[in-house]
């Protein structure tokens, strides 16, 4: 049965898509112990490869297309791709200190009523380019990272990272808008007060 929400990703040699889910992407980070060395270019640094089981592309689709076409001419327009890590929903739900997350709180997240999180239902096998299916995933809008675009394409070409599936409209726009809304929120010194009745 066709999924209403997902469709499988294109081949590795096609343009990345906005709201495309990839697996196994490796982010290179300067190891915490090397942060001081990283700004003193005479000393060697330690690099920590961080493997994201799943991550979703947040960069605008049109920018990715323009960049992909530019790369065919040895140019680039989007030097870095913005990603949001997608941990398994069950891992996010797992309590840290033994206390259960109240079920009503999780229900708000699962129904995408909590502005910080975005819940993704499991993807069926036929909507996954790897033909495995995806578990329930959750994005935390406070956590995102960027990666050098050329490095992303390199990993997809080498098969280190895999393109899995992408969100269909209007689920793509719903996700993208919620992320933009979260980033654009305005912190107020005090909320509006209401007179007691």
């Amino acid at each position: 049965m066709d999924s209403q929400i997902y469709t499988h990703s294109p081949n590795f040699n096609e343009c990345l898509r906005q709201a495309e889910i990839v697996s196994g992407i490796i982010q290179l980070m300067v190891a915490e112990s090397s942060l001081a060395s990283a700004i003193d270019f005479r000393r060697p640094i330690a690099v920590l490869p961080v493997v994201h089981e799943f991550a979703i592309v947040m960069t605008q689709g049109c920018d990715l297309v323009q960049d992909f076409n530019a790369r065919a001419k040895n140019e680039e327009q989007v030097p870095n791709v913005l990603f949001c890590p997608l941990p398994r929903a069950e891992a996010l739900k797992r309590p840290r200190n033994g206390s259960e997350i109240p079920s009503r709180d999780w229900k708000r997240i699962q129904q995408n009523d909590d502005k910080r999180y975005h819940f993704f239902e499991a993807a069926p096998q036929d909507a996954d380019a790897a033909n495995e299916g995806l578990p329930e995933l959750t994005a935390d809008f406070k956590r995102y990272f960027t990666m050098q675009t050329a490095f992303v394409y390199r990993q997809l070409k080498d098969g280190t990272a895999k393109r899995r599936c992408e969100l269909k409209s209007p689920y793509l726009e719903h996700f993208s808008f919620r992320f933009a809304f979260f980033l654009g929120r305005i912190g107020l010194p005090e909320p509006h007060q209401s007179e007691p009745a």
């Binding site: 005479r42 490869p49 493997v51 840290r96 997350i101 999780w106």
Partner: peptide, 21 residues
């Protein structure tokens, strides 16, 4: 930009941050 030498550590799985109040 001059390249600098670096050492690669063992890969780690991305950390998960459970939902907190």
């Amino acid at each position: 930009f001059e390249p600098i030498s670096c050492s690669m550590l063992e890969p780690e799985a991305a950390p998960v941050f459970p939902v907190t109040e």
